Amino acid sequence: MSYELNEHQIAQRQQTKKYISEHLVNSVDRMETEGVITADDINAVKESGIWEMVLGNETEWISKVTVLIELAKTSPSFASLFTDLIFTKSILANKYDGQFYSAAFVEEEAGSDLSVIQTEARKIKNNWVLTGEKWFVANAELADHYMVLAKTPDNTFSIFRVSNEAEGIITQEQKKMGLEGLKLSKVMFNQVSIPSSSLILSVDRSFEGLNYANGLAKLSISSLAIGIAEAALEESLVRARAREQFGNPIGDFQAIQFKIADITVGINAANTLLYLAAQKLDRNEEFETEAAMAKVFSTEIASKAVNHAVQIHGSHGLLNDSTVSQLYRSQRLTEIFGQTSEMQRITIAKYVIDHIGVNEKEVNYGLSL
């Protein structure tokens, strides 16, 4: 398959690169080292047009993932901001109002299996009252609203819009590995009263109603992982050309060349899977299995890329303030966020078992490969 960009998509990529070189690159040290992304950063990207490119309804997904890859190459933390926004915007659908939402779904004992969440929503007169504790809520301090998943009295699940200014909300930052600019928080809802109109969506225990939104999040995280891998490759090439040992650049040594080759092959293969999923989405076809393949492959290739990059840099790669060290720490979250690699493999295997070979006329193994 081909994922060559058309002229419009190339122009969007160039616009992203221009924004990065003129604005974002000056803030990278603060975002990636000091761990601060501000409301001013959000406003700046909105004014640049990047916000609309990633979140706009008129932008093709081929363009969206291209822009996210470029952002991730310079600032993985900044690119990661969009994962939650893409997920929550999809759930809101035509109710999306352009504000900043943070998803509050996961709990201490409820990760991939959301059916065991303990947060409750009770109807009292004309209001809902939320009680519970959510973990790993991204960018809580930047959000205008939380999107909260809670159990309702009839033993089903509903998603609510909750203003971050509502009474009874307490937030506590959770320290983590990598993506320093992406803040994670524990958010406690202590009998938070919200109007009945805050109910966004009800879902059953299978949570299949979230498959589309989860698929979009996988594309976003795949883009993030590929951007990290490409940044690791660029850093590795600089090091391989400049670092000399035993009288030669280390890039002359076959051991280093093999690492460069492995990273390059992996990035190209990951791009193929990601753009395949994006193309299917742009054609309004089912894309969730392809998104799972893109996520599991791209995130694990990124793991290989950052590991090789640290090895190529040697002891210098172990320093906390080195770029490859930051990439190494940030990549690890991509294999967990947006459902783990293990969950992606379950999704892929289930599709293959249920579909491949069931219809003898089926071609290409049931997938667009």
Results as ranks from 00 to 15, higher is better:
P76S: 03
E244W: 13
E107S: 06
A93K: 03
L201V: 09
S115Q: 00
A39M: 08
M31W: 13
S303W: 10
S48Q: 02
R122S: 14
G111Q: 09
T83R: 02
L114C: 03
N320G: 12
V324A: 08
I353L: 13
L81I: 11
A11Y: 11
I348S: 06
S298W: 02
I250W: 00
I117H: 01
R329A: 07
G56Q: 02
G357S: 07
S325G: 11
A292F: 00
G366L: 12
K64V: 04
S48F: 02
D252Y: 04
A79I: 11
L130K: 08
V106K: 07
F246S: 13
A305V: 12
A255Q: 12
V162C: 04
A269V: 14
L5C: 06
G317C: 00
A225K: 06
I250Y: 04
D154V: 03
A121W: 02
N43I: 03
N155I: 05
L201M: 14
I37S: 04
A103R: 02
S197G: 08
I356Y: 10
L184K: 02
T323K: 15
K304E: 11
E60G: 12
H313P: 01
A39T: 06
I37C: 02
Q172Y: 14
Y146N: 07
T74K: 09
Y351K: 05
I10C: 14
L85W: 08
S77F: 04
T119S: 12
A270D: 07
S341D: 03
V45M: 04
A213R: 02
G266N: 13
N26Y: 14
L224M: 09
A269G: 05
N26C: 10
L149Y: 03
A229R: 02
E234H: 15
S80F: 10
K304P: 07
F87N: 01
T323C: 03
T289P: 00
Y328Q: 09
I124C: 12
N43H: 01
Y3W: 10
L319N: 14
Q14P: 05
D204E: 04
R161L: 06
S322I: 02
V324K: 06
Y96G: 05
L68R: 10
E208H: 15
S2Q: 08
E167S: 15
N359F: 09
S63N: 05
S21E: 14
A242G: 09
S158D: 00
Q12F: 10
K259I: 06
F207R: 10
I250S: 12
S341N: 07
L182A: 09
I20P: 13
S77C: 02
A72S: 14
E60M: 08
L179V: 05
T334L: 00
A270G: 09
V265S: 13
T156L: 12
I10Q: 11
N307T: 13
F297A: 13
V54I: 14
G35C: 01
K259L: 07
A291Q: 06
R30I: 08
F189L: 14
T88M: 01
A11C: 11
T264C: 00
A143H: 00
Q254G: 08
A110P: 01
V310H: 01
V358R: 15
S163F: 05
I356A: 03
L273G: 04
D262P: 10
I221D: 02
E109Q: 14
K175Q: 11
E47P: 04
Q257A: 10
E133I: 15
L319D: 07
D144Y: 00
N139M: 10
W61R: 09
A121N: 03
F207D: 01
R345Q: 01
D41G: 00
